[in-house]
Amino acid sequence: MKRKIIIGSMIAALAIPALAIAATDEHPKGHHKGDIFERLDTNKDGEITFEEMTVKSTERFSKLDKDGNGAISIEEMTVRKKEFFDKLDTDNNGTISKEEARAFHKVKREERKERHAGRIMKILDADGNGTVTKEEFAAASDKRFEEADSNNDGLLSADELQKMGPKKGGMKKG
């Protein structure tokens, strides 16, 4: 029973920061409320259920639970910490230098940029041929406009732009 409480607490501890960021306008540099909300809202119904919120935490938990027994032992946590340390310590000298930390973060930043470019291409490249024509770009832009124009008057009000949010071409709250 005690183990289940600890496991539940760990899942909640992993999930709550993501939900807190998603629920506020205040978020760390590089994180965007809409992105997190959309990732958690897996069925895209505009609401996050408890099950949706815990999916990523459960996946992370499963990765840590190497033996699959439903609990994370101190040994499993130690293995995970060592694996992460070894990933950073590229020269294998037992220490992480500032250069190694920067290199690791640079790789992670590039991976995020690549994923972002892939998402953009998926949105814009309607025929899936790996390039975006002027027509495809215009069609995607028109679609964004139509989705934002909630009252269908052919104009975007400040309120409609605000609802789009800064990541989708709208205005920042201010």
Rank of each mutant, 00 (worst) to 15 (best):
M1F: 03
M1C: 08
K2V: 15
I5E: 03
G8Q: 11
S9V: 07
I11D: 03
I11C: 03
A12G: 06
L14Q: 05
L14C: 03
A15S: 13
A18L: 09
L19F: 15
A22R: 08
A22P: 05
T24M: 13
D25L: 08
E26C: 04
K33I: 00
F37Q: 02
F37V: 00
L40R: 07
D41R: 04
D41Q: 07
T42Y: 08
T42R: 15
G46K: 14
G46C: 11
E47K: 15
E47Q: 13
E47D: 05
F50T: 06
E51M: 04
E52D: 12
M53I: 07
M53G: 11
M53V: 04
T54I: 13
V55W: 04
T58S: 15
E59I: 04
L64Q: 11
G70C: 01
I72A: 03
S73Y: 00
E75W: 04
E75Q: 08
T78Y: 00
T78N: 00
V79H: 00
R80Y: 05
K81P: 01
K87N: 04
D91I: 09
N93M: 12
N93G: 11
I96E: 02
K98L: 12
K98M: 07
E99L: 05
E100G: 09
A101V: 07
H105E: 10
K106Y: 01
R109E: 10
E110W: 06
R112S: 04
R112H: 12
E114R: 14
H116T: 03
A117F: 10
R119L: 09
M121S: 15
M121H: 06
D125R: 02
G128Y: 02
G130C: 13
T131S: 15
T131D: 11
T131C: 10
V132A: 12
F137C: 06
F137M: 09
A139E: 09
A140S: 14
A140H: 13
A140D: 02
S141Y: 05
F145L: 09
F145K: 10
F145A: 09
A148G: 13
D149E: 11
N152G: 09
L155Q: 15
L156Y: 04
S157P: 09
S157C: 03
A158G: 05
D159Y: 01
E160L: 01
E160W: 03
K163R: 09
G165T: 02
G165F: 00
P166F: 08
K167R: 06
G170H: 03
K172D: 06
